[in-house]
Amino acid sequence: MSGFLSPVFEPGFFASAQVHVALEVGTVVALVAAAVGSFAVLRGQSFAGEALSDVGTAGGSGAFLVGVGPLWGFLVLGAAAACAMELIGVQRPRGRDLATGIVLGAGLGLAALFFSLVAEYRDTTGAPVTVLFGSLFTVSASLTPAIAALSVAGLALVLALYRPLLLSSASAELAAARGLPVRLIGVLYLVALVLAVALASLTIGTILSTGLLVGPAASAMRLTARPVRALLMAGLLGVAAVWLGVLLAYDSFYWPPVGHGWPVSFFVVALVMVFYLASGLPRALGARKRRRSAAGEAA
């Protein structure tokens, strides 16, 4: 078995402790990101997710400044940004887009400040890049319990809110008319979004975390019309992207130029993009088939 799979799994893949941690953490985070991301796409809050992750850049670099783990930086500034977005609280989509952009701009400004301070006061030139691009291989095993706990919290929140959240995402007016607290649901959802973005930022980096959040969810939505199935499928695609990404990144140590591993985050987002493009195929093929059969009938 291992003999004929050896071209796929390079030596040491299953024995590596780094790979174990990467797979465990990656799986959990991919599941949370997919569940929370499904609603981000449904609610048109992909941009908010992206903004929160970029604000997380400020959090991560700020954490370096004060000497705590980046995860706590992501969470604190993420929560602050979510509050700001909610306070600006614009209901129309275009206005919300602007409010998100303003928070994002201010957050990135803060990131610029923190980075310059990190460069000035601490001799950690590599730190910003770790925050920005992350790497599943550098996640320390000691963080696993915290990641698992936060993941469970994020997942539990979305699943508990599932039905009210689904209705208020489909139509806020219908939900309000039934007496559902639409605004409170939105705030609780933002909490879940902050958690998911912080976790994804920690594992694949702040600037790529949006990929894991939005990609699997957007692909799943195109593959099925059923809400629960879309959620499950998004989780499946997210986990697949992480596993394949870890495998390819591990294998890439043996690719030319030998000895240089390609970043795992690159593979994860590339796979997510491939999944998204592939998810459009069934409908495109169906449309072509219909056109052809229509042409055949006409002839």
Partner: peptide
Amino acid sequence: FDPDMPLRARDLVALGIDAQRWGI
């Protein structure tokens, strides 16, 4: 309603029964 939203007619009707409940 967005055309690509994964929500069938029957799902929306079902939400009419119990949208206020927790969980799936």
